[in-house]
């Protein structure tokens, strides 16, 4: 193929010597992370939901959380949120059947996302207890920009979707396999910047506010 490619592999081989067989390499790689619990923050005695809420609402992550028994309660909670933050009754809604099929009542719903979209509502595919993160996989009914353009992001999280650690997310999406979605977005709170004098400011380019609705039975 390209001469640059050949030259780079030649230089690596000069430095490293002959390559070892793939199985040996794979076994060595696995051994390095064989006991992940000694490499990551432990939170024994705290269940996934408690840890997720503690982290998501922490000073650093800055989300707010409310609880719903089922998805059917979500439109009402969204309406309450819009009133609470003084926004009009319109939302950009992730075009996912589970959300589309809900009775949105007085809230007007659209599925495109405007450059200056005030608020979007979406379902997270997963969440992470360790860090208080929500996870989105891109797809036909999950536009990436819905997570980044709005000023307010309301995220629906099913309690059963909360995974304990980041590694558990990768297992779920089938790490090590081809044909993953284009984007796996792990989102931890709101867009922030510390680029001016290291002061943490919210709403840099993406959402300034995140509200999470925890649904017991999704």
């Amino acid at each position: 193929m390209s001469t640059a490619r050949d030259a780079i592999f030649q230089a690596i081989s000069t430095a490293n010597g002959a390559p070892r067989d793939a199985d040996t390499i794979a076994a060595e790689a696995m051994a390095l992370i064989a006991t992940p619990d000694v490499l990551r923050p432990g939170f024994t005695g705290q269940d996934n939901l408690d840890r997720f809420i503690e982290k998501a609402t922490s000073e650093r992550v800055t989300a707010t959380v409310s609880h719903a028994a089922t998805l059917a309660e979500v439109p009402g909670q969204v309406a309450d949120y819009l009133t609470r933050v003084g926004l009009g009754a319109q939302i950009a809604l992730q075009p996912r059947a589970a959300l589309r099929d809900l009775d949105w009542g007085s809230v007007s719903v659209h599925h495109t996302v405007d450059a200056n979209e005030p608020v979007a509502v979406s379902i997270a595919d997963l969440a992470v207890a360790e860090t208080g993160s929500v996870v989105f996989l891109s797809g036909p009914d999950a536009p990436v920009l819905l997570t980044f353009l709005p000023l307010h992001h309301v995220v629906v999280v099913g309690q059963g979707q909360i995974r304990r650690h980041l590694e558990d997310v990768f297992e779920f999406v089938g790490a090590g396999q081809a044909s993953q979605p284009r984007n796996l977005n792990i989102v931890t709170g709101t867009s922030g910047t510390a680029d001016i004098e290291a002061k943490n400011i919210r709403g840099a380019h993406g959402p300034r506010f995140m509200h999470i609705i925890c649904v017991a039975d999704l």
């Binding site: 923050p41 993160s133 284009r182 792990i186």
Partner: peptide, 10 residues
Amino acid sequence: EITQYTTFYN
């Protein structure tokens, strides 16, 4: 503990 946005692209 983690940055706000961690994205894997395929």
